[in-house]
Nucleic acid binder design. Sequence first.
DNA 1: GTGTGCACTATTGTATACGATGATTGTGGA
DNA 2: TCCACAATCATCGTATACAATAGTGCACAC
Lengths: 245, 245
Amino acid sequence: MSIREAASERRRRAAAGTPSPLRSERVRTVYAGLLTAILDHRLPPGTRLPEDEIGAAFGASRTIVRAALQALAHERVVVVEPNRGAQVAKPTVEEARQVFEVRSLLEPRAASLAAARATKADITALRRHLKDERDAMAADDRHRAIALSASFHIRIAEIAEHAILEGFIRELTSRSSLVVSLYWHRPDTICERHAHSALVDALAEGAADRAADLMRSHLVDLLSGLDFSRPLPQPRSLAALLGPR
Amino acid sequence: MSIREAASERRRRAAAGTPSPLRSERVRTVYAGLLTAILDHRLPPGTRLPEDEIGAAFGASRTIVRAALQALAHERVVVVEPNRGAQVAKPTVEEARQVFEVRSLLEPRAASLAAARATKADITALRRHLKDERDAMAADDRHRAIALSASFHIRIAEIAEHAILEGFIRELTSRSSLVVSLYWHRPDTICERHAHSALVDALAEGAADRAADLMRSHLVDLLSGLDFSRPLPQPRSLAALLGPR
DNA sequence: GTGTGCACTATTGTATACGATGATTGTGGA
DNA sequence: TCCACAATCATCGTATACAATAGTGCACAC
């Protein structure tokens, strides 16, 4: 078995254990459909998710939909209020800070592990990923750019071959996507692209400590692109909406 | 803000602190019953968990049991194999290492936050907790001692008032309990008791850095009490079992 | 005696029916 | 005009029936 095959085999096994432990294929379909829609910001925070409607959209029964929603709720991507149904989560400012704080505890380690383990094939794949990001941004495909930017972090966690870190980072990047959709307010996303690229360079050289540092500062940078000062992103009552006509 | 909005807001906040986002009270009952049984090591790793049987034990329908099992599966305390049912998780050696590695990334931060935030009442409660641990050990109530030892770490995460850290630490301590039940092999647990006690002292003084260091070394110490060298706790094939008769 | 295949059993997967809950609207009275 | 209360509606919560699946043991042929 070649080195690359061995790596891919390792990766496959790692991936098997990773995502949410969903029993059936149909639940996974609904779960994945909802999750990507949320991460793409097609379903913004606060969107109600009635079981019937989702079931109709996916051609699934409420049993299936409920299982998918429960999984998403466990990852805090949706919140369910008893007897009131589910909706896309609306992270508070405090929650947003905590998400990035925990990311900055976990992801530098993932980066340094990845630096130690990355194969040539991994680096190639990452560079291709960077190119996709650039293309999406050039094409002004904001949804796709956001999704790719998040999955870059997940790719690194995968390369680190650390199932638990990967699982937590998956959850945190999902939640970050919601945070970004509520609080992002920086015009230029150039620095981020540069940060990702520098990180890949460090990984390619196997520079574990540098990779960790780059990841750390990248996360600080992301956090600084958020604007928590705006009054309130969400609750605006109907009165407020209709008043200043 | 209207009364209705305020109520929904309160509900939302209440749900936020809930360990696992379980919709109904009955699901929570089954979930909690199973979890404590597992953490107490009354249900050892590998125990099969048929839905009917659990339902009968708790007087609940399979619908309820399934929801509880799914939640436990998400926390990796049980594993479900499609069409084959659920069983108490049996962490591998690799998983065990990872659990403690991630704990040592997260818990020192929790400890230092707790040092900054702990009130006198918190410290009193922690000292009472320590006493309970001592009593359980003195009474040779191994189950209770193990459970208390784990919940000590959770208490600290609660004091840190960091919902995300707390959630992750909850999951990791649960998984640690399974690891301990499979791999623990140290006769003396005295050092641990001492470690907890020193940690509370640091929290009482508000010594954040020292608390973090103590937590870090405590976790290293716990890891060193595990014996991964024994052949294999679980998978031994039938051939291996029958061969060297 | 050995191997193959079939029926049986135990268990999970899914849909659906029915009851319960909470929001909303409409009506009556003060 | 406003509040209280009742009826309505949408939606969720739960039990249960039935289908599907994996595991088990038996019987039969060779």
